[in-house]
């Protein structure tokens, strides 16, 4: 026998004639005749009008986006930014790991000495947001917790040069990024280092 028997009973009518050639009677569940109430449809019309009238006074669904922030979980990967310490110093030591790991080659670092000549910090740090794919690899590679994915998602500009973010555009006080730091610490511990 064919696979006919394996088909659930309810679906068999769709298979056409049975193997024996006799068509399976199809049972129609829908009413094929409307009663007079349904034909006139007046009641339904008024029900519908009532429904839409009620909906008019229900609270709005829309979030007024640019003014009204919408809640974002720390797992959101927005524009990568550089953390600035409370004392104003830059966390990044321009080690170049993010530059190297970036699959889109969006990062260009111009390293330089700090006022303390044994320390290094970026003189300029460019992220080309036209190239960045927000993958977060830079964040994962950074040994200093200096580059972090912020929750900023508005990156559109009207001119190409504006899409090239420089050091001063990228610096963000570290307190604003604390949630993300905690989150990534937790997650990277979970993913990268199985605790023995």
């Amino acid at each position: 026998m064919s696979g006919y028997d394996q088909v659930p009973e309810a679906a068999r009518p769709f298979l056409g004639p049975t193997p024996s050639g006799k068509p399976v009677p199809v049972k129609v569940l829908r009413k094929d005749r409307l009663d007079w109430k349904e034909k006139v449809a007046l009641i339904e019309i008024f029900k519908g009008m009532g429904f839409t009238l009620r909906e008019m006074f229900r609270p709005r669904f829309t979030i007024q986006f640019p003014e009204e922030p919408f809640p974002r979980h720390p797992s959101v990967k927005g524009r990568p930014v550089l953390a600035k310490n409370p004392d104003g110093s830059i966390r990044c030591v321009s080690c170049g790991l993010c530059e190297f790991v970036c699959p889109a080659r969006a990062i260009t670092i111009d390293p330089g000495e700090t006022s303390d000549p044994i320390q290094r910090e970026p003189r300029d740090f460019q992220i080309d947001m036209l190239r960045c794919i927000l993958c977060g690899m830079c964040e994962e590679a950074c040994p200093e917790e200096a580059i972090l994915m912020s929750d900023e998602l508005l990156m559109a500009t009207d001119a190409r040069p504006k899409a090239l973010h420089h050091l001063e555009d990228l610096l963000v006080p570290v307190e604003k990024l604390q949630e993300r730091i905690d989150y990534t610490k937790r997650m990277y511990r979970k993913w990268n280092r199985p605790q023995s």
Binding site: E55, M56, F57, R58, P59, R60, T62, Q64
Partner: peptide, 13 residues
Amino acid sequence: KIAGWIQNRYGPN
């Protein structure tokens, strides 16, 4: 506007 309200939106604002 009314279309917006009926659909729980704001309409043009």
